[in-house]
Design a protein around this nucleic acid. Structure first.
Lengths: 342, 342
DNA sequence: TGCATCCATGGGAGCGCTCCCATAGAGTCG
DNA sequence: CGACTCTATGGGAGCGCTCCCATGGATGCA
């Protein structure tokens, strides 16, 4: 109700640092030191302050702290324009979960920005205007100009290798080339010979790298790679790509598909064409997202540690903010999960 | 690079309000008034200030503003524990998009909180500690104790009717009962008689309400409702529910399914049982999320305006914060989208 | 013409915190 | 034992803004 707004504004009078100090019988400065980690504070003082804090249920005022320290303790999560797609993909869901998990162990808050490339955009000027300490960019497409601008204004960590990679950039990625190799190698080892692939968009490093892994293994095995069709990392795109592959004649006996979602599309297209998985066509996906086990047959897939990737992104950014020297590139390993589709 | 951190901290010296004032030849106060909406400011002053702002590329310092105004201009989006599910559902993706769209037109920022029910939880004390102006709660399950606590500390708007509805609560929901009626009525009008339903979890209002709509129409039509099985709003749950319905014997000739995701599961189970959609069993889903059109046959479904729901949630909260008197309940209408599955 | 009223404007005070410097007391060392 | 160092502590200043009140000029009305 409305009085709750009023009450909120009043109850907002959470204790201040002065009140905590008074109760603990120390000065403001000592409380501040305790808040900052408890260095240079005697054991008794530390104890008294901690007790006062919990008795008064004291929560430091972020605004005051930011103003004085010139740090915002806020981190932006910048999400590419196409939100529905972003959130609709379990891969991103896992990343966000990981970021959050790491951040909840720090005293930073996550600000969510659905970024548009609108020049003079409010969000951009907010980010470059000193209102966040750093940004996590989950864009997997061309690093639009606004990302460049943000990258110049505050420390940024990219999820996935940036499109226009710059030596100064920081990013956390999965070893997509090796993932592509692992998935393809499994198919080769199982005796498949006519192996096609459905790729991610080739303007995205993840799409390119997985395809490269596929090609390397095929070449090493002395096999001619089957068709490679772009499935756009979506279920619909995967189905379309599958139909194009089938329309080309000479159906493959196996398929390396660069995402689980696309594999789902491919499987339904295969089904429509009367082909059976894995008997007629074996399929290996990529992600090991929840959809992998929801399919029939359950999908054999290359697992990428997406949640971990989110945590690592936050980790690297936090390390940079703390003045550390984290590596520019953090590469996480993939793992094959064998189920029923291959 | 690291010097970028330093540069950032220095470049952080975005112009201050005083600098803008000096450049515009007015006082700090006048600039502040312009920032606050430009009331009580002469046309010339207004113009000069606006020009100075854009020339200096001035962005107000949020921390200082918050500290002085005792408003944080931050709004929390509280997401239930189960993140993967939350983000994995396109329904929620649409809601988040809507919230963001509305907020980007205000000067509020969105803080994302993946809430755990951990008592003494950092996030909870942050939220109740006066660090946000209000919260949007996307929980569709039991309103856990932490939500209660937040609800007492700051203005909250719920997405969906709260489980334990309280007269003082604000929420934005879809007319689920009517949606259930619309979907079922279509099936009845098409001549189907043995109509079963797959429901959402019955501890969620959306699950209960859609079922109620289904039952009402069946009763009005003088039909005996077929089995109602809980599909948990997931694809897997939908498939399981479908199998249970089939196992009960006497297969229905139509199905009202309370979400598109569950409809997808149901369709694959039907397919496994050798039954054809819509010839053997007609299906009406609920949501009209992207999966509806990705299915074969494309799903006839009850569209709910999820993006709009997100916008409305933000709208109501903003209105409350501005001291307005928005209605406690905002109910959005559904609409039948006829495609190929029924 | 005089006085009340209104408006645009300027400046002081203060939001709650951190940072820096000063200080007192306790050790340490030659 | 004096000079020095080190540690814990307190308090002033100031972060950049908003809010409130005072001011002076313009306007309205009798």
């Amino acid at each position: 109700m409305d009085q709750r707004i009023g009450a909120g504004a009043a109850a907002r009078g959470t204790a201040t640092i002065e009140e905590v100090a008074a109760r603990a019988g120390v000065s403001r400065s000592t409380v501040s030191r305790v808040l900052g980690g408890g260095d240079r504070v005697s054991a008794e003082a530390l104890d008294a302050v901690r007790r006062a804090i919990s008795e008064l249920n004291y929560v430091p005022n972020r605004a005051a702290r930011s103003l004085a320290s010139r740090q915002t303790h806020a981190i932006a999560l910048v999400v590419p324009e196409d939100t529905t797609r972003f959130f609709g993909d379990p891969f991103f869901a896992a990343i966000v979960t990981g970021i959050n998990a790491r951040l909840s162990r720090s005293d930073h808050v996550l600000n969510l920005f659905i970024a548009s490339d609108d020049p003079g955009d409010k969000a951009t000027s907010y980010l470059t205007g000193g209102n966040v300490d750093g940004a996590l960019v989950a864009s997997h497409h061309t690093s639009d100009t606004f990302v460049e601008r943000i990258n110049q204004a505050v420390p940024v960590v990219f999820g996935g290798r940036p499109v226009r990679e710059h030596a100064a950039d920081y990013y956390v990625d999965v070893d997509n080339v090796e993932g592509g190799r692992v998935g393809t190698r499994y198919l080769v080892e199982r005796g498949h010979r006519r192996i096609a692939t459905i790729t991610g968009p080739l303007d995205m490093p993840a799409g390119v790298d997985r395809l490269q892994g596929f090609r390397e293994v095929m070449a090493d095995a002395g096999l001619t790679p089957g068709p490679a069709e772009d499935g756009d990392f979506t279920a619909i795109g995967g189905a379309d790509a599958m139909r194009r592959i089938l329309a080309a004649g000479d159906p493959p006996d196996a398929l390396f598909v660069a995402s689980d979602l696309m594999a789902r599309g491919a499987m339904s297209a295969l089904d429509g064409a009367g082909l059976r998985v894995p008997d007629d066509v074996a399929i290996v996906g990529f992600d090991d997202s929840p959809v992998a086990v929801s399919l029939t047959p359950r999908l054999t897939t290359v697992r990428q540690p997406s949640r971990l990737q989110g945590e690592a992104m936050a980790d690297v950014l936090l390390a940079r903010l703390a003045g550390g020297q984290p590596p520019h590139a953090t590469i996480l390993q993939t793992e094959l999960v064998v189920r029923d589709s291959a």
